[in-house]
């Protein structure tokens, strides 16, 4: 097309102008500067997040001589699983030298019933708050939610007294109760928001059909709420497994959960520091929540988003 041609409104020039110039799909550069910046920054951040995990794994597979010589980022020259065995079965806390396995089983014994009890209570609470409000129910709920922000330290001692009165202080049952209490605000909120989001007409239809409180809960609501139960289970399992403060306050050394025992092993002032054993022990303690996290994937994200953003 002649570039000197002016804006003559002739049919030919109009069509030719339509045909010339950019057309079709815009060519995309894979290595555009924008992409380099975006992926570069993300990659850098990913490195920062991954490095500690990498160092943990590498350290736990080295022998102590190699650790003393080399740098923490270098891969092991000679892979050894001895630190793992030692961490699991031989590491000492105080006078006990039977490793982390004791803490692991304690944590299992604490986590499973705590998750079940707390979810059972919270789901019924959420259901009552969503569908069967009574005078004052919102007031109690508000206290509960505000209570979630009260520092635990404020409530610990009164709970110690209550548990002592009930004869549960120092037992696993006491700790299960404590976990159920402190898990209640977020869990109740989670379930309440979920049940509120279900169509209200379903609940009305069930009432017209003559179903009562428990019948609607078990026969209508529960079958529809599997996702939220899974989300809640993920949150509670990781949360309770990772707890340290309640474990240290409410149990005795022989019932200490894994986190407490781990801290005692690593930060023990006696003996030579065995960093490889420490890292193996740390990885072992982190393994359960990590496995839960990697298996659950998006559900975990959904859980924290549901618990936080809607709250």
């Amino acid at each position: 097309m002649d570039k000197t041609l002016t804006m003559a409104p002739s049919v030919t020039s109009a069509t030719s102008r339509l045909e010339a110039g950019p057309q079709g799909k815009r060519p995309r550069k894979v290595l555009s500067s924008r992409n380099i910046i975006v992926y570069g920054l993300l990659g850098l951040a990913a490195l920062y997040y991954l490095l500690p995990l990498y160092v943990m794994v590498v350290t736990s597979l080295k022998g102590m001589p190699e650790i003393r010589l080399g740098n923490i980022f270098s891969p092991p020259m000679e892979i050894t699983f001895e630190p793992w065995v030692k961490a699991w079965a031989e590491a000492c806390t105080g006078l006990n030298c039977d490793g982390l396995s004791r803490g692991f089983w304690n944590s299992v014994r604490i986590t499973i019933p705590s998750v079940i009890v707390s979810i059972a209570i919270a789901s019924v609470n959420g259901y009552a708050l969503a569908n069967w409000r009574f005078k004052g129910s919102e007031v109690f709920f508000t206290i509960l939610i505000v209570g979630a922000f009260i520092p635990y330290q404020v409530m610990i001692y009164p709970i110690v007294i209550v548990l002592r009165e009930m004869g549960l202080y120092g037992t696993i049952y006491g700790l299960i109760l404590v976990h159920s209490i402190f898990g209640m605000p977020i869990q109740t909120l989670l379930f309440r928001n979920y049940f509120v989001s279900l169509p209200e007409e379903l609940f009305k239809a069930a009432r017209i059909d003559g179903a009562g409180f428990w019948q609607i809960y078990f026969r209508i609501m529960l079958p529809m709420s599997l996702p939220i139960f899974v989300v809640s289970m993920i949150l509670q399992t990781t949360g309770i497994w990772n707890d340290f403060l309640f474990g240290v306050v409410f149990t005795r050394p022989d019932t200490y959960p894994m986190t407490v025992q781990l801290n005692n092993i690593v930060n023990s002032v006696q003996g030579v520091k065995e960093y490889n054993v420490n890292m193996a022990a740390t990885l072992l303690t982190g393994a359960v929540p990590l496995i839960v996290y990697f298996i659950s994937g998006r559900l975990f994200v959904r859980g924290i988003a549901a618990g936080a953003v809607k709250g």
Binding site: K204, A205, A206
Partner: peptide, 20 residues
């Protein structure tokens, strides 16, 4: 009276069928 004891049936806008 409770809804079930009133001798009524109800049809809702969103159908409100039990999904499961």
């Amino acid at each position: 009276e409770e809804p079930k004891d009133r001798g009524i049936g109800m049809v809702f806008q969103s159908y409100a069928l039990y999904p499961q």
